[in-house]
């Protein structure tokens, strides 16, 4: 029997696992599915077509699955998918996807989303991500595994943040951030944010073999400490043999960013189902998305 306090409003159509716990003054909409062991603190609102996995903790006053703020959204069918063991802080807001952006917002597993943070429409969050307080993800953003984002950082639409990257507090991020780097601005009003070093904790968390980690550190130094153009240095790094996977991913992401509009590779996926849908979404949802969004 799920623990549901009397003073809350759970739609009879909602699918709530018997082991889920719903505290006082929560509101759960009819298209919500809550997995086993998930806990909703007081005054949580779950709405929209939202599927939540197991053992998540959703903080007080959070609103999960509301309509996106995107002015192009016309009220079409859209989903929010949340994996397992995530911790959402107090007053977090997460929105469903939009029709032009692929209709799905996805949060993986084992993530921490800090108090007051906002995950907007069509974002794809992988696993083991740590977000500080009042972090703003505008729409269509991809956060790769192990990314760390400090307080009050705002990330621009269509940006991708690499695996294990660290973004400092109050950083206005408008370009793709490569994996395993520190990225911040010294003075957030006038100094443009840029790569400021190697995120050793991210490399350690990724548990890379020693040789691969050493090559990655060398490559980050070559690419971002050099006075030569990034494209020139990429040619040099890519000629390494053997080229380990982490270094190859770093180079590939830098190349993608160089090819993208304003340093954002994902700009080219405006008005289409993004490639991350195939990577992150379960087959049943991918099928639904394809049915609702004909290829353009």
């Amino acid at each position: 029997m799920s623990s549901v306090t009397v003073l809350c409003e759970v739609a009879p159509e909602a699918q709530v696992d018997p082991s889920a716990r719903i505290d006082r003054w929560c509101v759960v909409g009819p298209h919500v599915c809550i997995g086993p062991g998930t806990q909703l603190a007081r005054r949580v609102t779950l709405t929209g077509h939202t599927v939540i996995g197991r053992d998540n903790v959703i903080g007080e006053g959070s609103v999960v699955g509301a309509d996106p703020q995107d002015l192009k959204y016309r009220g079409g069918l859209a989903w929010l998918l949340i994996g397992d063991r995530n911790r959402l802080g107090v007053n977090v807001t997460v929105h469903v996807g939009t029709e032009p952006g692929g209709r799905v917002t996805h949060i993986g597993s084992d993530n921490e989303i800090g108090d007051g943070s906002h995950v907007a429409h069509d974002c794809y969050l992988a696993d083991h991500i740590r977000m500080g307080r009042k972090v703003l993800l505008a729409g269509h953003i991809v956060l790769r595994t192990g990314a760390v984002i400090e307080d009050m950082t705002g990330i621009h639409h269509f940006t991708q943040i690499g695996r294990g990257a660290h973004i400092g507090p109050r950083t206005p991020v408008t370009r793709d951030v490569p994996p395993f780097v520190h990225y911040y601005s010294e003075d957030y009003y006038w100094d443009p944010p840029m790569v400021r070093g190697i995120h050793d904790a991210g490399i350690a968390a990724a548990k890379l073999p020693a040789a691969e980690a050493a090559q990655l550190r060398w490559a980050i130094g070559e690419l971002f400490d050099s006075e030569s153009a990034l494209a020139v240095m990429l040619d040099r790094v890519e000629r390494l043999s053997p080229l380990y996977e982490a270094t190859a991913q770093l180079c590939a992401m830098c190349r993608q960013s160089l090819s993208g509009l304003y340093g954002r590779y994902r700009e080219q996926f405006r008005n289409q189902v993004p490639p991350e849908a195939r990577e992150f979404l379960p087959p049943w949802l991918l099928e639904q998305v394809r049915k609702e969004t004909p290829c353009r």
Binding site: G61, V63, A66, Q69, N91, T93, G116
Partner: peptide, 11 residues
């Protein structure tokens, strides 16, 4: 005073 057709979002 709030006009018409506006969206006032969460929080």
């Amino acid at each position: 005073c709030i006009g018409r057709g506006s969206q006032i979002r969460e929080h």
